[in-house]
Structures are given as C-alpha cells and as structure tokens.
Design a protein around this nucleic acid. Structure first.
Lengths: 250, 250
DNA sequence: CGAACACTTGACAGCCCTCAACGTGAGTGG
DNA sequence: CCACTCACGTTGAGGGCTGTCAAGTGTTCG
C-alpha cells in the first residue's frame, strides 16, 4: 500500500466505454464533451484516450512531488488531497478534489508534479495523458476552451483563501465551498461527510487543529450546524453565508 | 484620467512590427515565439494580432472588475497592480505584474475580469485578443503549450503566499520574488525601485502598512538591505533567502 | 484488550492589528 | 523663494485572536 498508483497503468484499469458516457455527465469535461457543437468523432477520441483507474483506497498515493508529469485526472468518486511537505515536516494542503474536478493542472508548468496527491477514501479516476489531450484540444476548440477555463478557475480559487480572514470566516467559507461543489455534482448540499481529518482541514485553512475543533464546536453551539465526527449537517446557512461572503465574494 | 484605457483600442496604439521583435525578446511569449520549432508564418500571425498599447501613466486603469473579458496583455514596461475591493472598501492586492508578465489570465473562466488592473507607473503593453490567440494556439502547438504553462504557473504562484508565514518571511519572499523576476528580464537583482506604495505591499502580503514599515526598518537595521523611500538595495541576500526558503520552496 | 491515533478542551503567551500621533517629501500657489 | 497642504510613511502603546503546550477522552485496529 501507499505506492504510487497513478502514473503507471493500474491493473484494475477499465476501458468500458459504454459506462464512460454515464460517468462523464458529472465530470469536469462534461461541458466540452456534451456540448452541442462538439464533433462526434472528437468526442469518441476523448473517450478513447481516457483510462479508468481505481478503485484506490484511503492513503493510496496518486503521485508524489517531483514525479514526471504525464497525465491529469478527473475524480469520478471519492476525495483527493493535494499537499506539499516543507523541510520542517509540516504539511501544507493545497486543495481537496471532489468528484467531477481535476487533479494535476498545476504540474503543466515545469513537467513535474509540484505536490503530492493522495486518496482520502475510495477513489475512482479518469486519467488523461496530457500530451494526448493537448493534441486533441488543438483539433477541438471546445475542449481547448474548457481546459483554459479550468486552469483559469484554479488561479482564482487558489487566491481565495490567501486573505487574512478570521478562523470563523475561513471555516464558513470552507464548509460552504464544499457544500456548493457537492451540490453542483448532485450530492446533498446540507448533509455530507468530511472525508478529511481535522488536521487536513487545519493545514488547508492555515489554522491549528485545535482552532478547527473550537470553531466547529462554536458553530454547533450556535445552532449553525451539527457535527459528529466526520458527519456534518448544515442547519442554518444564513449566518455561514454572511461570514463567508467576503471570501467567496458573493 | 483614470478611465479604462485597455479594452478599447488606444489612440496611441502602434503597429510597428519591426520594433515588435525587439520588445518580444523579454515577453512572456518569447519562449513560444522564438523557439526553433515555431512556424515562421505562425510567428508572423502572432505579431500581427498584437496591439501595442501605451504609454499609460500611474493611476490609469487597464480594466475594472466585471468588465467583459476580451484580451490578455503582456507588460512591456512598468508595473501593473491587480486587485479587488471588498464591500468594506478594503483593497486586496492579487499581484504585481512586471515587464514580460501577463495580465488577465484569471478572466478566462467566466468571460469577465474578476479584478481591477491599474498602472503603478508608466506602462507599455502588448494586447492580445483572447479569441484570436486561442484560434492561433490551436494551430501552433508551441503557443498552446506556452499558454497552458503560463496558466499553470499562476496557479502555483497564487498558492505561495497563502501559508501562515510570519511578517518577516512574507517580506523576504516578496523582495526576493521581485528581485528574481526582475533579474530574469535583465534588470539588476540587487538594486530596484518599489513601484508600489507601502499600503499596496501590505494589502498584497496581508499585513498592516505599519508592519511593512517596521519589517523594512528591522531588515535595514540588521544590514540586510538599504531602503530610501521607493529605492531599495539588497545588501545581504543570505539571511533573506533563509527566511524566504520555506515560502519560495528552494 | 492494549496501543495508536484522532479529536477535544483548557491555560497561557506571542505576534500582529488597531488606534493614535508625528515626521517627511512633493506639488502648489502666493 | 517660501509657506501651505496633503498623501505617504514612520514610530509608539495597548489589546485581541490564534498558536503552542499540555492533558484528557473517545475510537479504531491489530
């Protein structure tokens, strides 16, 4: 276990193209794939170059910092955490990737992954060879446009948590962010599992784990939510939205 | 003054293609433009679709948050500041764009600029219509690759300052970052002007302006640098590198 | 059943923000 | 040439948020 399962072709790789069309309705490329304008032959080519990888299990590593960059991946199920470890051994979580989202876009720049990626629970992936998808993007304007969009979106997302927000604001923005992204893929916006440890949340929000505990308790005591271990239910969105508004900018 | 000068075609627009080749040696696209593999005709097309804009002066606005996204721009001279203003009127500086760097990449996602951009001093720009450069990118693999790289790079850069670093670490990383980026374009790495106000630096590093003053004074008293108003000279890089190392990751 | 781990809770201290006052340089008009 | 103004920058005092350290509780897994 804990071996790099992603860059290599996994023994469990599926190539079941019938199912692919079903899975893809919630994938990051769906807008490109399912758009009216997309050439039928090109759509076929995209589905041919995808490799289905998984299932990976909690703790399985997709890729390590410094690994040569070969592919990006769309999460079909589960949660992927990306992070770096500084020389003091402190972990900095860069992001959590939910179903339908992409992993590896930040590796394009220097041909090596600039971070580690690990599965937090049972994860299914669609793996796209980047050189191949780049070639296809040149032939399919809708796909190139979608790639540009997704890259651009990540620039903005990375900048969100950079502000000097309070612990309450950060936590509210984090929870609502999860809620919205899950809702966009058809999951319940008010009741979901925190697939990551408190420590992971802390390292993502740049807080101490103790502060994460305290804020969650404070929110629960205020009746904003109910939290039991990894199980979370949002009871009163309004105050959370108010807290998160300056961060989420809406 | 302070009118939006960027999206419209500026009256001072130049189309002097002879000079273009000279300016472009330090531009963000130079790697794509000047690469051996790049098709001569395609290189010509890139130079045809560029509009030279400027000079803009300190305080001139390139674009405002919410403006429809039409073009990205490469800075040829001067400094551009990008920022958002929250409902409390507080300014959050997203970045400073030096000669050779691009502005507007984060606007691709939703077809509107998500931030404001303003010139901090006398600025010269190369303006690229994004739809046109996207079409060209589909025909020129080297250009597409360069665009992907530049987008990917900005994702990583945005994540750098997100950590919970100390004021000293942030300032050291900021100054060394400027130094390196200027050096990469042929400017002196040890002696340069801070083209932005202390308040801008503070809003970028998420510090109070007073803290910026105090840290600079502390660095000067320690003999690490000499600073007089906007004029800055790095005297001892080693301690600064040590401070910034965990942020710059090297 | 024991051990390791995740999480919670409490006490304390430190860094940086806030508030306030002062200094300084550039531009302006007399 | 000089006084004036104003924005920018500096310096000082005090307080609040959150990190650190420590101990305790609960859960999972071997």
């Amino acid at each position: 276990m804990n071996t790099t399962a992603f860059p290599r072709t996994d023994p469990h790789t599926l190539s079941d193209d019938g199912d692919a069309l079903h899975f893809c309705t919630t994938c990051a490329f769906s807008q490109a794939c399912l758009s009216e304008g997309m050439d039928k032959r090109a759509l076929g080519e995209l589905h041919v170059l995808v490799e289905h990888v998984g299932p990976l299990h909690a703790g399985d590593i997709l890729f390590r910092e410094g690994d040569p960059f070969e592919a990006i991946a769309a999460v079909r199920a589960g949660t992927v955490k990306t992070f770096v470890v500084d020389r003091d051994g402190h972990e900095h979580v860069l992001g959590f990737h939910l179903p339908g989202e992409l992993v590896g876009l930040n590796a394009i720049d220097d041909d090596h992954y600039p971070c580690n990626a690990v599965a937090l629970d049972t994860v299914m992936l669609c793996r796209f060879s980047f050189p191949k998808i780049a070639v296809l993007a040149a032939k399919v304007p809708g796909l190139q446009r979608q790639l540009f969009r997704l890259l651009s979106r990540d620039i903005g997302r990375a900048a969100l948590l950079a502000g000097d927000w309070s612990a309450d604001q950060r936590m509210a923005a984090f929870l609502l962010g999860l809620s919205r992204r899950l809702a966009a893929r058809g999951f319940s916006p008010n009741r979901f599992a925190l697939t990551m440890a408190r420590t992971d949340i802390a390292n993502y929000l740049r807080l101490a784990p103790e502060t994460v505990s305290r804020v969650l308790k404070r929110f629960q005591d205020a009746g904003l939510l109910r939290v039991d271990r990894r199980d979370l239910e949002i009871l009163d969105r309004e105050p959370l939205e108010a807290l998160a508004a300056p961060i989420l900018r809406d």
